[in-house]
Amino acid sequence: MWSFFHKLGSPPWLYSIAGTILRWLLPITLVVLVAGAVWGLLYTPPDFRQGNSYRIMYIHVPTAVVALAGYYVMAIAGAISLIWRMKMADVAMRAAAPIGAMLTFLALVTGAIWGKPTWGTWWEWDARITSMLVLFFLYLGVMVLYDAYDNKEAAGRACAVLSLVGTVNIPIIYKSVDWWYSLHQPASIKFTGESTIDSSMLYPLLLMIVAFYALYTCCLLMNMRTELLRREARTGWVRRLIVEEGKG
C-alpha cells in the first residue's frame, strides 16, 4: 500500500492514471446522469401535495448533497497538503473549489425555481436554502483567498486552513440556521426532509445522487490534470507530453 501512497505523489503517474480513469468513468457518468434524469422526469408519479414540481428534487437534492460533500473533500485535501506537505493534495484542493462552488450555485438556482410553485416566491428563506447560500459564500471565500496570495504555495496553505475552519463551522451553521428557521417559521412544508419518500421516487433520487458523485469525481480529475500541467510546466514529462499532443 505504501508504494501506492508514495506514487500518488508523482505528478506524471497521477496525470496518466487520471486519464485512464476518466476514459471509462466519464461515459458511464453521462449515461447514468441522463438515465436518472429521464427516469425522474418522465417515469415517476407526481407528488400528491406538490404535483409535478417536486421533480426538481432529482437535481436539487443531489447537487446540494455533493456540494456539501465537496467542501469536505476540499478540506481533507487541504489538511493532507498542510500536514503531510503533499503537493498532489494541494492540487486536489485547488481543483475541488470551483466544482463545489458551481454545484452549490446549481443547488441554489434549482431550489429557488422549486420554491416558486411551492411557496409562490422566487426566494424563500428556507433553512436548507439559507445554509446552502452560506456554504456558497464559504466556497467563494476560499477561491478569493487563493487568488489574493501572490505566492501560490502560501495560498494553498492559507486555503487549507480556511477550509478546515469552514468544515468545523458548517455543522454549527446548518444546525443554527435550522433552529433559526423553526423559530421564525411555524413548521410549513419541510422542504427536503420528506419524512417518508415513496420507493418509486427514492430509487431515481439515489441514482441521481450516485450520478452527481461520479460527475464530481470526473470534474475533479479533469481539473487536477490541468492544474498539474500548469504547475509542472517546466518539467521533462510535460515537455514530452506536449510533443506527443503536437503529433497526435
Partner: peptide, 9 residues
C-alpha cells in the same frame, strides 16, 4: 468575505 459566513450562528 472570509469571516461573515462564520458570524452567522
Amino acid at each position: 468575505l472570509l469571516v461573515l459566513p462564520l458570524y452567522v450562528p
